[in-house]
Each structure stands twice: as structure tokens, then as C-alpha cells.
Amino acid sequence: MRELFHRKLERSALGFVFAIIAAASVGGIVEIAPLFTIDETVEEAPDMRLYTPLELAGRNIYIREGCYACHSQMIRTLRDDVERYGPYSLAVESKYDRPMLWGSKRTGPDLARVGGKYSDFWHVAHLTNPRDVVPQSNMPGYPWLARNALDVDDLGLHLQAQQTLGVPYSDEMVANAARDAMGQASPDSAFADGVSERYGDATQISSFDGVTTQVTEMDALVSYLQILGRLTDAAYRGTVAEEQVPNPNN
């Protein structure tokens, strides 16, 4: 009987079109829609903090340079992953990530918890020429990042777009985005205080690339790398992993 019906279907182009749409829609609907309705999909983390404008700019540079092509940001629920990189990643840790950067390949190591692991100085040296510090590395160098001034003027627009999409940036944060980006990279400047005021005392304020006279793309990228895994300590709670909860003052 099926065959007879199919013969009929083959005679109608439009019928075929609708049949294809029907058959192909089910999977996506069943797998995607419940991710919004099942509450436990994204864990609770009251201490979850936002990306500062500088970190967000750094994240966009990470995206621009295609870092995700070789580095994952996802520690899987596998013992060797956890023992090498730290507690397995939780969904809530990428709650504000648009898009997510979990990655699909580890030509280089996972970066989900690289924040605070190495010094800013090391990151700058490593990004400028990885083989200066890791002779075995096959990562490209990014010397131009330290030369390029960061475009801070548009950061307000970036925060505004995120706000529209539901990321809880306040209007004050949007209005001060450019200033906060400069303040975070210039500890001695008048702008620095506003950053900790708006984003919390745990925010790392530092002259990331060692040069305070201008805010570069290197500053932004290093500030982003240094925050990876440190937006919330949810992943450290209720696990047998040996790592301690990071001290926010560290």
C-alpha cells in the first residue's frame, strides 16, 4: 500500500515538498525546543558575572582570528578531561556566550579554564610568537594584535545588542562601555574605578600587554583569556574533583 501512496506522491511536486518539510522538521523541534522548557538544562549560578566590554572585545578577536578552530572550551564529562583541564564544564558557564565557542577540535589544548593559569606577560609572549615559549608549538603567531589599537568606540553598540538579546547589561554599562574598556586596561587611569564598580571587584584590571599608553587588541584578547572559567564557580561545587574553588581575590 505504501508503494501505491508513494507513486501518488511522486506525481505531485508540492505534495513532495510538504512531505520533505514534515519529515525533516521533527528532529530539530524535538531536540531544540525542550532545551528552552526544561529548567535543569542551564544550572543556577547566582554568582555568574558578565563579560566586561574589554573581555567581550577580546572574545570577538578570539572569534575573528578563528581560535575556536584549534582550541575547545569544553571540558567533557570524562575523567581524563577533568584530570587534565579541571572540573567539567557546565551549561551555565556559557549562558552569555553568543555564539558559544565550545569548539570541535583540539589541535591545541582546551582553554575552558585557562584563566589565571599563566601570567599576562606569558600570554603576550606566547601570542606574539608561540615558539618563543613553547618550541614544540604549531600555533600561528599574532604579532599584529599588540600593534593594533582596539576599536572601543563601537563597544556601546555591542553591549546594546547583547542587552536586546537578554544579556543583563545595565543601561549604565552600555553608556560607559568604551570608558570601561580603557579603564580595565589602564589601572592608573581615572576610568579604572568605574570598571570594578560596575562589574565587581573580582574584575582583573591590568595593563595586560604591559603598555598603558594605548589599549590594544592584545589587551582585549589577554583579558578575555584570563577570564575563561572564572565567570562563576558553579563548576567547582558538588564535585569530587580535587581543585578548589577559585578565590575571587586571586
Binding site: G116, K117, Y118, S119, D120, W122, V245, P246
Partner: peptide, 8 residues
């Protein structure tokens, strides 16, 4: 700079 490994 030498990082602290106390937590990690």
C-alpha cells in the same frame, strides 16, 4: 611572575 598553583 610565577602563578600560584594552590587552587589548580
Amino acid at each position: 611572575h610565577m602563578p600560584t598553583w594552590d587552587e589548580r
